[in-house]
Design a protein around this nucleic acid. Structure first.
Length: 423
RNA sequence: GGAGAGGUGUCUGAGUGGUCGAAAGAGCACGCCUGGAAAGUGUGUAUACGCCAAAAGUGUAUCGAGGGUUCGAAUCCCUCCCUCUCCGCCA
């Protein structure tokens, strides 16, 4: 959520930045500013009436204590309309605040100055490509066929017990999952992230805090009985740990990592591109989250990007890094890097990580603040990234590492899998 | 799930209609004391929004949340949420 005071002071700049995200509703911004004016005027009026009423109430109290009952009654008779006025102004204020809020949450975050203009994924900027795309042997198979051939993943069984997009991992397929999770967590801890294990269901306030609500409820599974959402990413519970928190300056940066399954309804996506592990309703992911001083967030963003790239390099996967264009970026992000690995059998890039800086967009909703050098409270910057999401990593590993002998496990994973080959 | 008790500031904890944004203690910060430290001692120590160019200052709101009664609510009433104790159930 953007802060009204910022919009008030920087209207032109805000409009210009929003345009990079292809958000061109000047009227909405102006309506927000008008509502803010109205809000402040209403509050001033109400505060003034309240001050008068408070003073009178105090006076009555003093007179009563002094035994001057009649004088007190005299003042009491004059208090008549105040209460009504306060109520009226209070209702008005609440209404205006609500209206303002409803419009304010429609504004996406302002993109960072490095974000390229553009509408579609094709306009994302490739900042670097690393690793060599493997030459696969003749008769190379896509991962869903490899998964069947080596009895690693059973998609049909998942359909039987739950539905499409809920695969059952078996044998070395299941062990590979655990190995990757442990490897990713260990690497994150080495980089200074402390592990948390969090609930997989969150309440509405949490969904709101990180920006999934209002708006994306359709993408989350919802347990109506208890009004809880299944998390679409660990970002939601982990970041919300710090909702309504004022951190000490020396507590920053906060660095957390955690593994969770993620649940996504993915309403409306079907077809060849979502075959196999390419798009699932449930998948495992290790997430890294940081809460930092505002002046350090872009530096940290680069560090997080480097961490994710390190994982891909260690796994021996060819990858590229994209700087998302305004049109492809998420609503809440100021800058996003996507990491994609090259899936050799499918001959396409697969997104395996997304690292974003949200600046104060999340923290303003979360009321996540820290005490700055002057001892004043200030909104912190939040960042998060996948490090990493499993299914597409598994897909690429299986496809890229297939040989006539079987599928070779990357060296860094062998201590975790305790086997070198899937054969 | 049943019965009871309770939610006050960073913490403990007082406060049943006015002098309460809130006693007292602890913690923390700064100062004094000290050769240095401990002890002692003094002062300070919530958040949000508004007014003000800004600092200073000042107004308003907040004692789990929301509503009500009243000139006036931490205190009385209603609804909801949460915590604890006992019983039941249970990985």
């Amino acid at each position: 959520m953007l802060q009204v005071s910022y919009i008030r002071d920087n209207r032109e700049q805000v409009l210009e930045r929003l345009a990079v995200k292809n958000f061109k509703q000047t009227e909405l911004v102006d309506e927000i500013l008008q509502l803010d004016d109205k809000r402040r005027q209403t509050q001033t009026s109400m505060d003034n009436v309240s001050a008068e009423a408070n003073a009178a109430a105090k006076q009555i109290g003093d007179l009563m204590r002094a035994g001057k009952k009649e004088e007190a009654e005299g003042i009491k008779s004059k208090t008549g309309t105040w209460k009504e006025d306060i109520k009226k102004l209070g209702d008005q204020l609440a209404l205006t605040e609500e209206e303002l809020y409803q419009k304010l949450v429609l504004l996406p975050n302002l993109p960072h100055s490095s974000v390229p203009k553009g509408l579609t994924p094709e306009e994302n900027e490739v900042i670097l490509e690393n690793g060599t795309k493997p030459e696969l042997p003749a008769g190379a198979l896509p991962h869903w066929e490899l998964a069947a051939k080596y009895n690693l993943i059973d998609f049909e069984l998942g359909v039987k017990i739950t539905g499409a997009g809920f695969p059952v991992y078996k044998n070395k397929g299941a062990k590979l999952q655990r190995a990757l999770i442990n490897y990713f967590i260990d690497e994150a801890e080495k980089a200074g992230y402390s592990e948390v294990s969090v609930p997989l269901m969150v309440n509405e306030a949490s969904g709101f805090g990180t920006g999934q609500l209002p708006d994306k409820e359709g993408q989350m599974y919802f347990v109506n009985e208890d009004k809880l959402f299944l998390i679409p990413t660990a970002e939601v519970p982990i970041t919300n740990l710090y909702r309504d928190v004022i951190l000490k300056g020396e507590d920053l940066p906060v660095k957390n990592c955690g593994h969770t399954p993620c649940f996504r309804r993915e309403a409306g996506s079907y077809g060849a591109h979502v075959r196999g592990l390419n798009r699932l309703h449930q998948f495992d992911k290790v997430e890294i989250v940081q809460i930092v001083q505002p002046d350090r967030s872009y530096e940290v963003h680069e560090q997080m990007s480097a961490h994710v790239q390190g994982l891909l390099q260690n796994l021996g996967l060819p990858y590229r890094v994209l700087r998302l264009c305004g049109g492809d970026m998420g609503f809440a992000a100021a800058l996003t890097y996507d990491m994609e690995t090259w899936s050799a059998a499918q001959q396409r890039w697969l997104e395996v990580s997304s690292v974003s800086n949200f600046e104060t967009f999340q923290s303003s909703r979360l009321k996540l603040r820290f005490r700055n050098a002057e001892g004043k409270t200030q909104l912190a910057h939040t960042l998060n990234g996948s490090a990493l999401a499993l299914p597409r990593i598994v897909a690429t590993l299986l496809e890229n590492n297939q040989t006539e002998r079987g599928i070779r496990i990357p060296e860094v994973l062998v201590p975790y899998t305790k086997f070198e080959w899937i054969d």
